[in-house]
Design a protein around this nucleic acid. Structure first.
Lengths: 262, 262
DNA sequence: CGAATTATTATGTCTATACATTAAAACAGT
DNA sequence: ACTGTTTTAATGTATAGACATAATAATTCG
């Protein structure tokens, strides 16, 4: 299976590597290896937990020395895409809940951190086509089917956050069978999509009458609004707007200078 | 100079490297090299633009092969700490204005992006000791002298943002001579501190009468508040609270899955 | 059968060498 | 002095081999 899966796309003719200089044609060899492996991981073709080919297998496949494939694998490991275990092999990592920079993903653990019991309710769940407005939010041209979900999250008895979400059901067809009875949409999605990039927009607004009623705050109270568009392998996955009562919520972000290695 | 600066701290006895196995004592050799170089860069000992020793010099210094130092340098280059130029050598990079993840540093360019003329005013500038409250904000135990600066930033005729800042004058003594006539404190600081880590806290509040007057917004209007603590080489540098009229400002953040290389 | 011992194997690190590439620097001819 | 050419030096990439390390798998012994 390993060899087959490599061969189907990584077709590598001997002519490409006979002359040493030719290797540099489309970048260096170790970089080509890196990109090809990365592509398989980020696309989900090699899901989390998958054991990628051994160094000696890649060595045979690319007709190169072990140091060359080692260079690519070491970089993947430093980037956190794979985990290497002696004797066992190298395995695709499970992506961290969110890049440790901005932890706004898992509302449940956010509430748990406050020491309060967590609960959520799905208030609307509707399958429909993208409106023009949706397309702008989601950042997508095509008019595909989406699932439109509205949730309320609670910390103890108090409303904690309002969630309005669109999910691209072309990208995640399974979502149409998912009722979100036990797992909220955000947590469910991270279990479905291996690796994603995201864009956040954060602003402050005043609660309109609807929000005020839902969040049980005075009309006009300050709210923190976070809008997130999520992409995987270049395709839009979901758009979500989270509205928090402003006085009770704080968003935290960290920045470190880049580090050379782990 | 290069050799001297290396020798003063990087004392490396022959006994450490006679037996091959001993190298692994405190991690691998290339990792030790990486850490030592990184330390010099992040601390500012080797400032932006500094030409770090050539590979063959490091080879001689660490009594190892070129591949070993090359590994360390390649990782530093991938991390963006140094830039490598054939024939010329390797140079410490000038840090990007901010990690491309959250661009909230340069208010001037933020305003410029709106196509409006930028202007700022220093409204208060006071040298004093840390109060207990300050110490919590700044995240520092010791009671050192700080500079307390308050600024208003304008986009065209309208107030754009209110800035309240504390600067640790123990860490940046030069700040005591700086009057911030032309360059606002934020921009001035990034020119003084080579590499920094930061922690942001973001929330929504309702404008109190003072803010409302300064920002020319109705009392009780939603405002976006960003508090940032900045550290360099583990030492606190500055604490700043930026208050924006909520309806007019949006904070944008990006996340990408980690990449193996440049 | 279960525990202790012994292979086996994949990764981790390092070496010494080789040649390619590129850009600065030195040089030569006008 | 200017221009075009050659030299040179530093990085970029790759190789084949060596030994270390750690953890799994196989084997042996009580």
């Amino acid at each position: 299976m390993t060899d087959a899966s490599l061969d189907q796309s990584g077709v590598r003719l001997l002519s490409d590597i006979t002359a040493k200089g030719d290797i540099t044609a489309k970048g260096s060899l170790h970089q080509r290896i890196l990109v090809e492996l990365e592509e398989r991981i980020l696309s989900g073709e090699w899901p989390p937990g998958y054991r990628i080919p051994f160094e000696h297998e890649l060595t045979a496949h690319y007709h190169c020395s072990r140091m060359t494939v080692n260079k690519a694998l070491t970089q993947l490991a430093n980037a956190g895409l794979i985990e290497r275990r002696r004797k066992a092999g190298s395995f695709v990592t499970r992506p961290r809940v969110q890049s440790a920079v901005l932890e706004i993903n898992d509302i449940q653990s956010e509430v748990a951190a406050l020491g309060l019991p967590y609960r959520f309710e799905v208030n609307a769940r509707q399958q429909r086509r993208l409106t023009r407005e949706d397309r702008q939010s989601l950042g997508v041209e095509a008019k595909g089917p989406v699932l439109d979900v509205t949730c309320h999250h609670f910390a103890g008895a108090r409303p904690f956050c309002l969630e309005e979400r669109l999910i691209n059901s072309d990208a995640i067809p399974d979502v149409l069978h998912e009722k979100f009875k036990r797992v909220p949409p955000g947590a469910w999605l991270v279990s479905q999509v291996p690796w994603s990039s995201a864009e956040h927009r954060i602003r402050a607004i005043e609660a309109d009458p609807g929000m005020a009623a839902v969040l049980k705050i005075p009309e006009g109270a300050a709210c923190l609004v976070i809008e997130r568009r999520t992409f995987s392998a270049g395709k839009p996955i979901t758009f979500v707007r989270l509205t928090y009562p402003g006085n009770e919520h704080e968003l935290v972000a960290h920045f470190e200078p880049p580090r050379g290695a782990a």
